[in-house]
Computed example of a mutant assay.
Amino acid sequence: MNANVGGIDRILRIVAGLALLAFAFFGPADLSWKWVGYIGVVPLLTALMGWCPAYTLIGVSTCPAKRA
């Protein structure tokens, strides 16, 4: 499991993940599709691990150490 998520990519994933989770926890209570916010766990985990399975499948890497 080699790192394939770079610094800026990690920051964007953390921000997106936290925003989605905030929507799930603090969004309007009358929405029936509030569960979509829990998808925010995925970008948070990939940012913390530094590895994205989807990037592996398509052969992409934003990690500068991987390109060097």
Score class of each variant (00 low, 15 high):
Pro53His: 03
Ala19Cys: 04
Thr46Glu: 02
Leu20Tyr: 04
Pro43Thr: 06
Gly17Cys: 06
Pro43Ala: 02
Leu18Asp: 01
Gly59Asp: 10
Lys34Pro: 08
Leu45Arg: 06
Asp9His: 10
Ala47Phe: 00
Leu31Val: 11
Leu31Thr: 11
Leu48Arg: 04
Thr46Phe: 01
Ala54Asn: 03
Gly40His: 05
Leu48Glu: 02
Ile39Gly: 14
Asn2Leu: 10
Asn2His: 12
Cys63Gly: 11
Ala16Thr: 04
Cys52Thr: 00
Ile14Tyr: 11
Asn4His: 01
Cys52Trp: 00
Tyr55Asn: 08
Ile39Leu: 15
Met49Lys: 12
Trp35Phe: 14
Ile8Gly: 10
Ala22Trp: 10
Phe25Leu: 09
Asn2Glu: 12
Trp33Phe: 15
Leu57Glu: 11
Ala47Leu: 03
Val60Leu: 15
Val41Cys: 14
Pro28Glu: 05
Ala16Pro: 00
Arg67Trp: 15
Arg67Leu: 14
Arg67Cys: 08
Val15Thr: 03
Leu12Phe: 09
Ser61Leu: 02
Met1Cys: 14
Leu57Asn: 09
Pro28Phe: 02
Met1Pro: 15
Gly37Gln: 06
Ile8Arg: 12
Pro64Ala: 07
Phe26Cys: 10
Thr62Ile: 11
Ile11Pro: 05
Cys63Trp: 13
Ile8Pro: 06
Pro64Glu: 10
Cys52Phe: 01
Thr62Val: 12
Gly59Ala: 09
Ser61Trp: 02
Ala3Asp: 08
Ala29Pro: 07
Gly27Ala: 04
Leu48Val: 13
Lys66Asp: 15
Trp33Val: 15
Gly7Ala: 13
Val15Ala: 03
Tyr55Phe: 07
Gly17Leu: 03
Pro64Arg: 04
Met49Ser: 12
Gly27His: 02
Ala16Ser: 06
Arg10Gln: 07
Leu31Trp: 14
Thr46Ser: 00
Cys63Asp: 15
Thr62Leu: 12
Phe26Val: 09
Trp33His: 14
Gly6His: 08
Ile14Gln: 05
Trp35Asp: 06
Pro53Trp: 03
Tyr38Ser: 02
